[in-house]
Computed example of a mutant assay.
Amino acid sequence: MSTDREQLEKDALIACQAVDYYDLADNISEMSDAELQRIIDYNEKPLESASPTSRETATLLAALRYWQSVTTGMDYKEAAALMPEMFTSETPLLDEDIDALAEKLNTPNPSAYSALAVSTRHITEEDSKFLGQLSRAPSAMHFMERETGYFIKMPECEDALVKTAHGLSEITVALMVEVHRAGYHMLELDRDAEEIGGFPVFDW
């Protein structure tokens, strides 16, 4: 297999919807380059990243620096008067405060811990029962049961995640993989949480 083909298959697996991941993995060798490219080009990801993308960060920094240039020499009251609808209860950042925020945006925080709450309707009743068993196991490290659902701690790498999820359905594993890829550290399955697009819903 050529390097280009290997990269194309890898990119397609990353781009595909989580619920299609296993079907694609099973049949990827039979698909043409054009079919794989269509998956990459047109498949929308159902989850937003836990952190701003580099493009989003660059735009935020540009907006900050523009605001800083416009408000140079102003006090808080004068700056707030430029956009009064945005500063009804807070004062705007100026000068050194903007520098500090720009530095924060430019410096990743490895200790930041993010969680995504998802409706339990995205897992089957059988998986819910199995998660309960996993949570009560003496060696349980990644699963915790609570009254309204479960917490699932994401392992560091995707291979470890798949091993951790052994015994769960492909649908639930695919959801966990998608959450992991989006950069979240914890999946919170909760009966009161919102449903998300791109995943099946189960009534039980």
Rank of each mutant, 00 (worst) to 15 (best):
R146I: 05
S29V: 09
A112H: 11
V179Q: 02
A115H: 05
P108F: 05
S111C: 02
E78F: 08
P92C: 13
D33R: 04
I171C: 12
G167C: 04
E188L: 11
M176R: 00
L105G: 06
A63D: 15
E195V: 11
E78T: 14
Y21M: 14
T148P: 06
P92W: 13
E103Y: 09
V70G: 07
S128V: 09
A63P: 05
E78Q: 15
L13V: 08
A25F: 07
T71F: 15
K129V: 09
S119K: 03
M186W: 01
H142A: 11
D4H: 10
D97L: 09
M74C: 13
S119C: 06
S54Y: 10
G183V: 03
F199M: 09
E145R: 12
Y76K: 14
E147V: 07
A80F: 10
E85S: 09
L60H: 07
D33C: 07
E9F: 00
P138Y: 03
R146W: 01
E48Y: 02
A117I: 05
R38I: 14
F143W: 02
E9K: 12
R55A: 04
E56S: 14
A25S: 09
M186T: 04
R38S: 15
Q7I: 15
R5I: 13
F199L: 10
L101E: 03
Y76I: 15
F130P: 01
S169R: 12
A160Y: 00
I196G: 12
H142V: 12
R55I: 01
N27E: 09
R181D: 01
F202Q: 03
N27A: 11
E103V: 00
V201G: 09
M186C: 10
A174T: 05
E96A: 14
E9S: 07
H166P: 00
R65L: 10
T124V: 12
P200R: 07
S139Q: 06
A112M: 05
L36T: 06
V162S: 00
R121T: 10
M31H: 04
E145C: 13
Q37K: 15
M31P: 03
D97M: 05
A25V: 11
M141F: 01
P92L: 14
F130W: 07
F87G: 06
Q7H: 15
A112N: 07
E48N: 08
A140P: 00
